[in-house]
């Protein structure tokens, strides 16, 4: 992608954001209030962190459907550790370790043993949900949460930003460093783009696939930590609400920016949060959120598909010539 088209894409993204924000603001001026913007950023944080992890798996051209289940297991593990009186850092590490381990397991199954990614990750996700029932037989855990300092992760501030948003920005920064600025990023993209050519170029393609799944699991559990911190309780279905927004963010971003990347995923997350937050302000109930997100996703995939956009462009030949 040349810098020029990237600039156009960023402009287009800014325009879409402005239009959506303008529409909601015209309906309800509170949309652009400081309080709502903070709420919006908080909303972005949970979904954004999970979507960041998924981005890596999509970059190496695989799928992970296990991360919602894994996140639930991570949430319950963390909750159980906190309830058991463990220090907060230990509990969070425990939760994140769950994500890492499941991710590595997925990665090895897919890369080394060549199991089909979709069904394998559905199965491991199912397993993770099963394990998440172990701690409390399915009831939610909130003992010691108030004392442990977990809730401060949600309520605290860092450099003037709400902590969840700061964590998202931090994770995104690390993600950008890895994917855009480090040699590993090159290896991730090369693996996804053309695995054979990458292997011939000396890229350890299997290791990159395992790493992508591991990062996806890790990020899913980090995102669920934020979620639990904001809701104040860990429960076995904590992760399930991550699936749709994460896929939508990655695919929406990739559709807007031409390929999956950290920035594209952040942009996708932002668009979704804008819409969800806006509709919430318009008093549209929570259970419509997946409907909105999935409709936008289907439309985006359809409209940005090269064959379909090509067909649309053929319908307006004059414009095509002007661009060329």
């Amino acid at each position: 992608m040349t810098t020029n088209t990237l600039f156009i894409r960023i402009l287009a993204f800014g325009a879409i954001v402005a239009i959506i924000a303008g529409l909601f603001w015209s309906q309800n001026p509170a949309f652009l209030s400081t309080g709502n913007i903070r709420a919006l950023m908080r909303h972005m944080s949970v979904n954004g962190v999970a979507a960041l992890g998924l981005t890596f798996v999509i970059v190496v051209r695989h799928f992970d459907l296990s991360f919602p289940g894994v996140a639930s297991f991570g949430a319950m593990t963390m909750g159980w550790l906190i309830a058991g009186g463990q220090p907060l850092w230990m509990a969070i590490s425990g939760g994140l370790a769950v994500g890492l381990l499941f991710g590595i397991f997925n990665g090895i199954a897919v890369a080394r043993f060549k199991l089909p990614d979709i069904v394998t990750t559905i199965a491991t996700g199912g397993l993770a949900i099963g394990f998440s029932y172990f701690y409390s037989n399915g009831t939610s855990i909130s003992r010691n949460f108030f004392m442990s300092g977990l809730l401060d992760i949600n309520d605290g501030r860092f450099l003037g930003l709400d902590r969840p948003f700061a964590i998202l920005l931090g994770a995104a920064l690390i993600g950008i460093l890895i994917l855009n600025a480090s040699r590993f990023g090159r290896a991730f993209y090369a693996t996804g783009e053309n695995e054979t050519a990458a292997w011939y170029s000396g890229v350890p393609v299997n290791a990159m696939v395992v790493a992508a799944f591991a990062l996806c699991g890790l990020c899913a559990c980090l995102s669920v930590v934020l979620l639990v911190a904001s809701s104040g309780a860990a429960n076995v279905s904590a992760g399930t609400q991550l699936l749709m927004p994460a896929f939508a963010a990655v695919y929406l971003g990739a559709a807007l920016f031409g390929r999956p990347s950290v920035l594209a995923t952040l942009a996708g997350t932002m668009l979704m949060s804008l819409m969800l937050n806006g509709f919430t302000l318009l008093a549209i109930p929570y259970y419509y959120s997946d409907a909105i997100v999935s409709t936008v996703l289907i439309l985006a995939i359809t409209c940005f598909d090269p064959r379909i956009s090509g067909a649309l462009r053929r319908l307006i030949p004059a414009r095509k010539e002007k661009l060329a």
Partner: peptide, 9 residues
């Protein structure tokens, strides 16, 4: 095309 290059990069 299959062994040498990432054609979209």
């Amino acid at each position: 095309r299959t062994e040498g290059l990432s054609m979209d990069e």
